[in-house]
Design a protein around this nucleic acid. Sequence first.
DNA 1: CTCCGGTCTT
DNA 2: AAGACCGGAG
Length: 291
Amino acid sequence: MVSILLSWYSTTARVFFWRRPNIDPWVVLVSEVMLQQTQASRVEQRLPEFLDVFPTPQAMAEASAGTVLKMWSGMGYNRRALRLQETAVAITERFAGRVPGEVDQLKSLPGIGPYTSAAVACFAFGRRVVVLDVNVRRVYTRISRRCTTTVDVDDDTTLTAYAESIIPHDSPSQWHHAVMDLGATICTARSPQCPLCPLQDFCPSAHVLQQASRPKKQEPSWRGQPRRIWRGRIVEFLRSSSQEASVHNITTRLFGSDTTSEDADFVQSLLTSLATEGMIVRKGQTAQLVD
DNA sequence: CTCCGGTCTT
DNA sequence: AAGACCGGAG
């Protein structure tokens, strides 16, 4: 399976900026943080301008959290921009400005968890470590045993043991890229394309997966819109106004002139959580984006 | 409208 | 263990 998948990858690999050989570890780290939450095509589109402003950990460490937050606009999950800036500071202070190559060192950085630490160690430093994201988990589960439905996924202990047995020693980076590409393009979550799969003759789950779906949980809403949408609008408004705004202005901006006291309370609660997370600073009845 | 995802918090 | 966090694409 290993040689067949690597051979498939050698001819069909998706080409991305962050997959170039000898890529700067900082570029890999920034890319992987973005890829946690954003589709690859969008990351590719936004990465150049981002790296233009923050070409090194030092550059981002010297920038304010507010500057990074503004550059992050449109990427989603804004708190990760804050964590990334903190990571840049930690790298300059604790690792002499160099992205560390050990998984445990990487995992000690803010916003860098099990996936991203393994991905950076593998893709930036060529380490043979187990990298598990949702695509890799799905592909490993399907090729390691006969699954019955499209939602079958093994636990991380099982997956890690399987990964250790199959990751090639000479090309762990290419291997993980290959598995991710297979999961993204053919071995997809809901409608796998087994007839197109290079592993179909060896995969115990090929052609036998039954469609299944997971129960979806619904998110808290206010006036028919998810809470996170209102939250995002506040951050976007403060980003563009770039100076402090009164709570009254924010509320009017969101709900128009006929706001109720419940709307005002709702805005206050959003501002409180944004302030707690360090996204904004409140001064009396005004709020602004962090400096 | 539904779907997607890694990390941190509770 | 479960939920919050985001914006874009389908």
